[in-house]
């Protein structure tokens, strides 16, 4: 029985082909992982790629601006609108 098994394993099962691992697969996986944060590791957040950090910053700024927070890019005077301005702006349309 043992002889039959050995024969079977070596001469029949032994000839099965397998394709080679795609070249550079391990390094591609590692490279992709480096763009991801590790669970619970805040330090990794600092190593995120720069485009991601910039986009995150812009998103936060847009969010704050949406709530009317003065981000300091323009002086308040430039955008102050008083009652008179609104009245005059409608004058032409009425006439």
């Amino acid at each position: 029985m043992r002889h039959i098994n050995t024969n079977f394993n070596q001469h029949i099962l032994g000839s099965r082909p397998i394709p080679p691992t795609p070249e550079g697969l391990a390094e591609r996986i590692i490279a992709r992982a480096r763009t991801m944060p590790v669970e619970g590791n805040i330090l990794m957040m600092l190593l995120l790629p720069r485009p991601f950090i910039i986009l995150s910053f812009l998103f936060v700024m847009a969010f704050l601006a949406g709530f009317g927070v003065d981000l300091g890019f323009n002086s308040a005077d430039e955008f102050s609108v008083n009652e008179q301005d609104i009245l005059y702006s409608f004058e032409g349309d009425i006439l």
Binding site: I18, P19, T21, P22, L25, A26, I29, I30, A33, R34, V38, G40, N41, L43, M44
Partner: peptide, 22 residues
């Protein structure tokens, strides 16, 4: 939090896992 440890695990097991999966 050591990402390099992950890289080592990947290098050790990628070929083996690829064969198993294929």
């Amino acid at each position: 939090g050591d990402a390099d440890a992950f890289a080592e695990l990947v290098r050790r097991h990628t070929d083996y896992l690829f064969r198993i999966v294929w």
